[in-house]
Design a protein around this nucleic acid. Structure first.
Length: 295
DNA sequence: CACTTGACCTGTCCGC
DNA sequence: TGCGGACAGGTCAAGT
């Protein structure tokens, strides 16, 4: 579930904690979670200092002084949690219980730093991965090259959104929003929330959308992503930030996982359907399907 | 080529 | 209580 706001929240947390730390050891309880290129990986990891923590779409980039970078994709259940060696949590601190239990059976990679701090990559379903790549090659790997624009960059306007969507004219708008080559960073939660905000039915074909629709959608995407970052992201099942804390966005969500509840705009009951083989939440009154557009 | 579906995994929940 | 199966959903490979 980590989508752009969750990954950005983790990035903000890690960029407070990691820069300047020197990697002392890396353990991989699940070797498949760590994909290293050819050559002696250890020499580019051990003794390397963390320079910065960046994000592209849903991917985290940890740049090291060895001219290599750690590239991390959390997929659905990945977590990156930092455990300080000398941090004292007050009673009832939300992260105390989780952090205290690390490592656990979902721990896939452990980074140990020379000052005793540790960074845990936990991933229940093992879909996520960590790669070590030369920093200059990171933008050249296929995954990165195919990514669409960053929706929170200042040059992402409605005309850009329209141009990107034109790559997928015959699919439904929900599938297009989930396509990372169209726009980077949107997943199931923010696709549903953005479409509700723009009053667009998820099954509308992309080519049926008017300019006004696309302007509304652009506005909704940016607003929803910014609001979620402000709330620390969404915790649906197991997302936590770098401090082990959950996000609160879902308390403010309008439709996601609110089937059976009332639309805050028109009081109609929110429904859940399947679109692009994903659970999809919408208000059937605010988000109407114009005619018989397939499916 | 454009688009959709299944596989990758594990934990949880639901019905029998 | 236990068990089978559906479901969760990001991305790539395979299928239509």
């Amino acid at each position: 579930m980590p989508e752009l706001p969750e990954v950005e929240t983790i990035r903000i947390g890690l960029s407070r904690l990691l820069p300047g730390l020197v990697i002392k050891a890396v353990d991989c309880p699940n070797p498949k979670s760590f994909v290293a290129g050819a050559g002696d990986v250890r020499s580019f990891l051990l003794g390397a200092k963390v320079l910065s923590v960046k994000r592209r779409g849903k991917v985290l980039l940890i740049e090291l002084s060895s001219h290599y970078s750690l590239v991390i994709h959390l997929k659905m259940t990945g977590q990156l949690v930092f455990k300080g060696s000398s941090v004292h949590f007050g009673a009832g601190h939300p992260s105390k219980s989780l952090i205290g239990k690390l490592p656990d059976k979902s721990t896939r990679v452990i980074f140990s730093f020379s000052d005793g701090n540790k960074l845990y990559f936990n991933d229940q379903r093992k879909f996520g991965w960590v790669r070590l790549l030369p920093t200059t090659e990171v933008p050249n790997i296929k995954f990165m090259q195919k990514l669409g624009p960053e929706p929170l960059e200042s040059d992402f306007n409605w005309q850009v959104l329209k141009a990107r969507l034109s790559r997928r004219p015959n699919t439904n708008i929900k599938a297009a929003l989930l396509d990372q080559t169209v726009i980077a960073g949107i997943g199931n939660i923010y696709a549903d929330e953005s479409l509700w905000g723009a009053k667009i039915h998820p099954q509308r074909l992309v080519r049926s959308l008017s300019d006004a629709n696309i302007k509304n959608l652009h506005f909704a995407i940016v607003a929803v992503l910014l609001m979620s970052i402000e709330k620390g992201g969404s915790t649906d099942r197991n997302y936590v930030d770098a401090d082990g804390k959950k996000g609160s966005y879902l308390r403010f969500a309008k439709v996601f996982r609110r089937d059976g509840q009332r639309c805050p705009r028109c009081n109609t009951e929110i429904i859940k359907i399947r679109v692009a083989s994903r659970g999809t939440h919408l208000c059937p009154h605010c988000q109407k399907l114009p005619k018989v557009t397939g499916k």
